[in-house]
Design a protein around this nucleic acid. Structure first.
Lengths: 148, 148
DNA sequence: GCAATATGCTTGCATGTGCAAGTGATTCGG
DNA sequence: CCGAATCACTTGCACATGCAAGCATATTGC
C-alpha cells in the first residue's frame, strides 16, 4: 500500500507525538513549564554563555521570532531567563539562562530522562539503542544546531 | 553528560519536528490543508468504513475532543468529510471521509511520501530502513490505533 | 422504572502561535 | 557620507487549541 519510507515517517511522527504528549503533562504538573519552555532552556544550556539571540532560538525551535518574544516575557518574570542586549549590535537581544533557570532545567531534565528511560528500557538491548541513536543522528545531521 | 536514552528521545523529537515543519509548508501550499487535517483524513482512511467518532479521533491524534469538533466544521464545508450520527447511539457523531476527501488525501499522501523519500533515500541502505522501521514499531507498539 | 452516573459532543474563555506591518539599528552602494 | 536595503525584534490581528462548563443521550444501581 505505502512504501517503507512513508511508513517510517508516519511512525516517526507518531512516536514523537506520543512521547511529547506524555512529557507535556508531567513537565507542566511537576515543574510548571511547557515542553517548549523546556526545549528553549535546553537550547540555552547547550549554547555558548548559555545565551542565544531570539532569531537564533526561533530557527532552532522551528517557531517564529514573535513566539520567542512572547515565550521569553513570562520566563523573565519568573526569573528563568534574563534579557541581554548586545554591546556591538543593539538589534540583538539575547535570551540568557539564569542560575534559577538552569536549576529548573536540571530538574526538568531528570523528568525527561526518566520518561526517555521508560520509552526504551526493558525492551531494548544496548546495541540496539546505539544503532537507533546512530540512525536518528543521520536524520538530523543536516542541522548544525541540534540539541543532541 | 546525558545518557543515550535521553539523547535518543531528544533526537526523536528533533527529527519529527524537522520533518513536520517541512511537511507543513508543502501541504498547505500545494494542497491547502494542514498537517493535522492530513493526519485526520489518514486516520479515517485506515478506519473501518472510513469513519471514526470524534472522541476516537481525538485519542488517536492526541488532541482534545473540542479540537476535533472545530477541525471537522470547515472540512465539512469544503466537502472533505461528512457528519454522520449513529443509529444506535445518538451521542455518537462520526466523521466520515467523502470521495473528494479521499482523493485529496491521496494527493497529499504522495507529497508526504516524496518528503519521506527525501528523508531516507540516498543515505540509507534497504536493510537499515527495515531495521529503523522495526525499531519505530516497537516505540509505538503500545498503541492499538497507530497509523503505521 | 427512575434517579444517579457516565459518555459524547459542543461552546465560552483563555492561551499559544504565525503572519504581516511597524520600528529601530546596521550594512551596503554610490 | 547618505539613502536604500537588510536585519532583529515587537505588536496587532487572526486562527488553533485546551479546559471547564453545559447539554443531550445512554447506562447503571436500586
Amino acid at each position: 500500500m505505502t512504501d517503507l519510507h512513508t511508513t517510517n515517517a508516519l511512525r516517526l511522527l507518531q512516536a514523537a507525538d506520543d512521547f511529547r504528549a506524555g512529557l507535556s503533562g508531567e513537565l507542566s504538573a511537576v515543574h510548571g513549564i511547557s515542553v517548549n519552555e523546556f526545549l528553549l532552556m535546553l537550547h540555552l544550556e547547550r549554547a555558548a554563555a548559555h545565551r542565544l539571540s531570539r532569531v537564533d532560538l526561533a530557527k532552532r525551535m522551528h517557531v517564529s521570532a514573535s513566539t520567542i518574544t512572547r515565550m521569553a516575557a513570562p520566563m523573565e518574570k519568573i526569573g528563568l531567563v534574563d534579557r541581554q542586549v548586545d554591546d556591538r549590535d543593539a538589534r540583538l537581544v539575547f535570551v540568557v539562562a539564569t542560575q534559577a533557570g538552569r536549576a529548573k532545567l536540571s530538574e526538568a531534565l531528570s523528568t525527561f530522562s526518566k520518561r526517555a528511560g521508560y520509552l526504551f528500557s526493558d525492551r531494548w538491548e544496548d546495541d540496539e539503542v546505539d544503532q537507533f541513536a546512530a540512525m536518528l543522528r543521520r536524520l538530523i545531521a543536516g542541522r548544525g544546531d541540534t540539541l543532541a
